[in-house]
Amino acid sequence: MALRSLAGSIAKSVVQTMGVSGPSALGAGRLRLGQAALFGLRGYADAALTKDEVTARVLEVVKNMEKVDPAKVNEESCDFTKDLGLDSLDTVEVVMAFEEEFQLEIPDDEADKIASCQQAIEYIAQHPMAK
């Protein structure tokens, strides 16, 4: 009981600070809170990409690179330099393409470490912001 009245007073003060009043406005406020919680959950669900999905999309990005022979791209041997014959500048382009595909920003020192599809998949799969 005491808890409920506490919640009520908090809700009222929230409504007051929002500069609205009345029961309907309170309802709207609740709805908004509910939606926020829903979006929060959705965001979390989106973030949890499966490794298979990441793998498929990484390979797709690599296959679409201009200088890459798509026939050579497979999950097991996909070292950018050794298997695909890319130089360091091409590698930069590939990693930047991953950034675009998964909507993340890979800092320089991390990007320098990514030299194969496997490394890219590992990095992206554990990245909380990857979409």
């Binding site: 330099t81 360091s88 500048l89 930069v92 382009e93 930047m96 675009e100 320089d108 990007a111 320098d112 470490k113 030299a115």
Partner: peptide
């Protein structure tokens, strides 16, 4: 493993990245 990059190589690659970011 990755071929170890020298400091100046890293600078060039980092510069290329900022060019690509600008282009985007």
């Amino acid at each position: 493993m990755v071929a170890r990059l020298s400091g100046i190589q890293k600078q060039v690659l980092s510069f290329y990245r900022s060019v690509i970011r600008t282009a985007r």
